[in-house]
Design a protein around this nucleic acid. Structure first.
Lengths: 243, 243
DNA sequence: CGCCGCGTTGAAGAAAATCAAAGCACGTGG
DNA sequence: CCACGTGCTTTGATTTTCTTCAACGCGGCG
């Protein structure tokens, strides 16, 4: 990476001081390469390390004993991975890589140092956690109270917003290497029904999805179809401690 | 309250220094009384204050334009309320009181002070946030990948664990003032189907629920029925900064 | 008494899962 | 080059699960 992903990500939340930036650079000193499908954390194991996602995509999954799986989040560049994992003695969720990716490993002691020496960064980390929680809430509402079709629309609309957010432009086409089976596990649907909903999505000229390639045909109608609102992007940073 | 709920709650996570305790006491200086059904936060509004839950119960809800509702969490004594709300310009969720309750209001400036002056407390707050996230994950898995009956079993088993956790004993009977309609919105089911599942729960001698009164008849079988695992209670505090 | 909210039951219908089969692209080995 | 297997996608038929609609009992309460 030319410039640190983490610095770029944290900068989106608030202005950073020089010494804070210098500290953040220490998080990306140990890159580790992963191949498509590799497991970063196994569910139920204990985790000693955290990671900064430098490039690529990965996802958070929860496997049930009966073989069913729920995918809870998709992560990409700049995200800190493993927060949940180091906070628990046994990891709640598994984490798997969606494409060839680079993750930078760092020890959890660095977290403690952030809290004691860099309160502003700790505040931003907290904010980022809240944003993640907001995304998770949207996921829960999706699963609990929306039809299969609305779930799909909502997920696509949200994904577009997230891609826009990292690229800083309004894109009509983007690629996220999601297999259809994974999409089903994100939406809490069967694979067959997911295909049907994808057909319908294309038929209504809202969006198309083909082996990881998304095209948004009618962004407005897409949002209307699922009452999409992106309040969770509007963070309030006013309470953050000074640098 | 005889002793501060917040101090009691934070102490469950880690040992506190005298000056940290003194600081936490400042959070419960302004009690506000609520009656059953009162709204604490309205969804979509902006929030300036946070609250510590001193007594009573409340819940977090997400209302959709079509009138459907998803309940995301149940809160009780010692919980900090409004974290999500002050982190966003517009509140993502609404919050409503389930019984006559006392909440202690505090300004968000106190949060910044916690981060800059009391890093250990900030770390605990972060841990508490992770725990909440873990609960939310369980909720999402419930909604996405479990049958109606398993959802109910899981919710009851989890609620029992949470009550045990605050009372520090293993209770077979406990009261949480949840109307059946609310239970339906927690489980993402229709009210009628919720009643049916409750019937089945009683018929299988796993547990009973009657107007807010829960009785656990067979804790083990209850957990088996939904593959319940309470990993999310086993927090790892080793990385917390020193007091 | 009648009204209302809450719980219960039954029947019909919709939504999604499951089962099964077949097409298609792709690579592999003969 | 073709035969073959494999994984991904599509389609149809059937079944399960849950919702919706409707009705009713029942207790409290004006």
């Amino acid at each position: 990476m030319s410039v640190s992903c983490l610095v770029r990500n944290f900068s989106r939340y608030a202005e950073l001081a020089e010494r804070d930036i210098a500290f953040l650079l220490r998080f990306e000193e140990t890159p580790v390469h992963y191949r498509t499908g590799d497991i970063v954390f196994e569910q139920g194991h204990e985790a000693d390390h955290l990671y900064v996602m430098s490039s690529g995509w990965c996802f958070v999954k929860y496997d049930q004993p009966d073989g069913s799986r729920q995918v809870l989040d998709i992560c990409h560049g700049g995200d800190i991975i493993g927060m949940r994992e180091v906070c628990f003695q046994r990891s709640i969720c598994g984490m798997q890589v969606l494409s060839d990716s680079v993750l930078c490993m760092f020890p959890k002691a660095l977290l403690a140092e952030m809290f004691s020496e860099h309160p502003r960064l700790a505040g931003i980390l907290f904010l980022a956690g809240m944003r993640r929680e907001a995304l998770l809430i949207e996921r829960a509402v999706n699963l609990g109270r929306r039809s299969a079709f609305a779930r799909l629309c909502h997920f696509v609309a949200e994904l577009k917003d997230r891609v826009d957010h990292v690229t800083d432009v309004d894109v009509a086409h983007f690629d996220v290497p999601i297999p259809a089976a994974l999409l089903a596990d994100i939406l809490g649907l069967s694979e067959v029904h997911t295909y049907r909903m994808l057909k319908q999505l294309a038929k209504q000229r809202l969006a198309t999805f083909d082996s990881g390639h998304f095209s948004i045909l009618n962004p407005l109608a897409l949002r209307v179809a699922c009452d999409y609102q992106n309040n969770y992007l509007l963070l309030d940073k006013s309470w953050l401690p000074a640098a």
